[in-house]
Simulated scan of single mutants.
Amino acid sequence: MVTHVPTPPSDRPALTRRADRFLTHWSLRADGPHLSGIAALVLPVTAADGTPAALKVQHLDEECAGEATALLTWAGDGAVRLLAHDPPTGTLLLERLDEHRPLSALPDTREAVDVLGALLARLTAHPAPPGLRRLGDIARGMTARLPRALRAEADPGTRRLLRDCAAALGEVADEPGDRLLHWDLHYGNVLAAARAPWLAIDPKPLAGDPGFELLPALANRYDPSDTRRRFDALTAALGLDRERARAWTLARVLQNRLWQLEEGRAGRPRDDVRLAVGRALRAL
């Protein structure tokens, strides 16, 4: 998942116009067509000095507002480099990566999980800078929203799971952490690069515990027989306390279901891979 609220299709023309404006503003030459994501447009470009780059335009929301701050903090350590940015619009000029070689195309999921673990270890080694969303605030918000969600959840088994997720959150919420989190590091948000084998893109940054980072890697390219191995590989790569990481991952399962219920997108619980990950981790 890139963001839980897709950009409405009617907003695409506005993003395209903004991209055209910044081509002129930053003296860029377009090298190819716009690449449309869920909430942004990315355009391959060449700068005036010949540097290949990527122009990213997006609608600012609470999830992407800190993207430039995070990229500046990482300074290319495991993540795409930020070359320029426009704070009022959230427009970014990024180093060019190979959009045709995402980690999701790697056939060996074991190798892909190891790549994600190594990247997460590098990214979360950085303390979060001031001004980002904080996991402690998110945790308190989830706790406050839980009663209404339980009333909306029709499936008894899923209600029990959500209560268990909330209980796990309660065990760790008083120590929410202070690391710089990517929050959305799945296989599609890692691209091959010239200066490094793989680099992370599209952070939705917040300050918190690295255990909150694991769910995308467990749910993306989901394999029910591989959940425990992936979880163990990721916690080992990041040097995490296994029980704390389990609790924060269950909290992430709760967060996702809260969004689904509030937005009327809950669907059938048995078809939801994140709930399946929650059930598997609850049994560990």
Rank of each mutant, 00 (worst) to 15 (best):
G278T: 07
A112N: 07
L240S: 05
A217S: 13
H126Q: 11
L94G: 11
D272Y: 08
P13V: 04
A200I: 10
A276K: 10
R148D: 15
A118N: 10
V273R: 13
G78F: 03
G90E: 03
D86G: 06
H85S: 14
L41I: 13
V172S: 04
A245Y: 05
F22R: 06
V172C: 07
S225L: 14
A75K: 05
L60K: 08
A105S: 15
A200F: 10
A68L: 09
R17E: 14
C64E: 01
D178R: 13
R134A: 14
T158C: 14
F212N: 13
T46Y: 05
D223P: 04
A154Y: 01
V115S: 12
L250R: 03
L261I: 12
L83G: 04
L15M: 09
A48L: 10
L35H: 14
P205K: 05
C64T: 15
E99R: 14
D202W: 06
D223W: 03
A152R: 13
G37E: 05
L103S: 07
P210H: 12
A39F: 01
H59L: 12
Q58N: 11
H34N: 01
A192D: 11
P203D: 03
D77Y: 06
P205M: 08
R265L: 15
R179A: 15
V113K: 03
R229Q: 14
P8H: 03
P197F: 05
R246N: 02
Q58P: 01
A193T: 11
A19C: 04
H186S: 07
A283D: 11
R81K: 05
R110F: 00
Y187C: 07
G32M: 01
D184T: 13
P203W: 03
G141S: 10
L185Y: 04
P107N: 10
L23A: 03
D223Q: 11
C64L: 01
A112F: 12
Q255M: 10
R151V: 01
A276F: 00
A192M: 09
R274P: 00
L97S: 09
L132V: 02
H85Q: 08
A194Q: 13
L214E: 04
A54D: 03
L234I: 08
A173E: 13
